[in-house]
Amino acid sequence: MESPTGMPGHMLLSLRGIAKSFGAVRALDGVDLDIGPAEVLGLMGDNGAGKSTLTKIVAGNFPPTEGQIALGGTAMVFDRPAAARDAGIEVMYQDLAIAENLTASANIFLGREMTRSFGPLRFLDHSGMNKRSAELFRELKSETRSDDLVKQMSGGQRQAVAIARTRLAKAKLVLMDEPTAAISVRQVAEVLDLIRRLRDGGTAVMLISHRMPDVFTVCDRIAVLRRGRKVADKPVTATSPEEITGLITGAIETG
């Protein structure tokens, strides 16, 4: 099924010929990638392979030098983060993009605060936001209080705040850049659980990780980037950690 843009309409997100240059550095080169609805895609690759660059392009942080992005077969231009967000794409950054001087609920609602009007004036609806945040934390089974400052929170609680933010947005696609890089074993299990919960709720996830076990536990499909090019893209059932390792390092040319 091809849409007028020539992009597959049954795919949630389609990337075609994505390239990105930073001066002389070719961070991405001719990358084609598709993600289906409620699919969990693992994106792997060595340091500097271009994974974060690809997420930033999809998130609208900067435009690609070349290539097209389509959502459900419709061509999109994500010229700023808000454009991607409005299209239903949420990002969980490596550093979580959290302001430590604000409360959990302020962070969850940052950029889309709930307000109440008094005549011509609009004021923050503190209790409404706290209540909704508490609900989100309860759904996530997270021991996090809405009106606590993030400064005082553990790594796992910060993850919960970042994840609650994507739940609030009812995202179609969540991009996660190394969510399990800097947290404890128990917290990794929590995040993986959460990715499953997101998928069961109909949200697609693009998971960037260097941790082979995480990717093989939770992903439906794995794509490998090497030096800015996609060298493999296959269902987890059709590959093995050994093969993926070979593809990442270049011991295996393509898969």
Binding site: P81, A97, A99, L102, A106, L110, R112, F123
Partner: peptide, 21 residues
């Protein structure tokens, strides 16, 4: 107000503020 909230967010973490729109 939203204005005040964003002011604190910018001071707390400019990248976080930027990325949340």
């Amino acid at each position: 107000t939203v204005w005040g909230r964003h002011l604190f967010a910018v001071g707390g973490s400019e990248p976080a503020a930027m990325r949340t729109g």
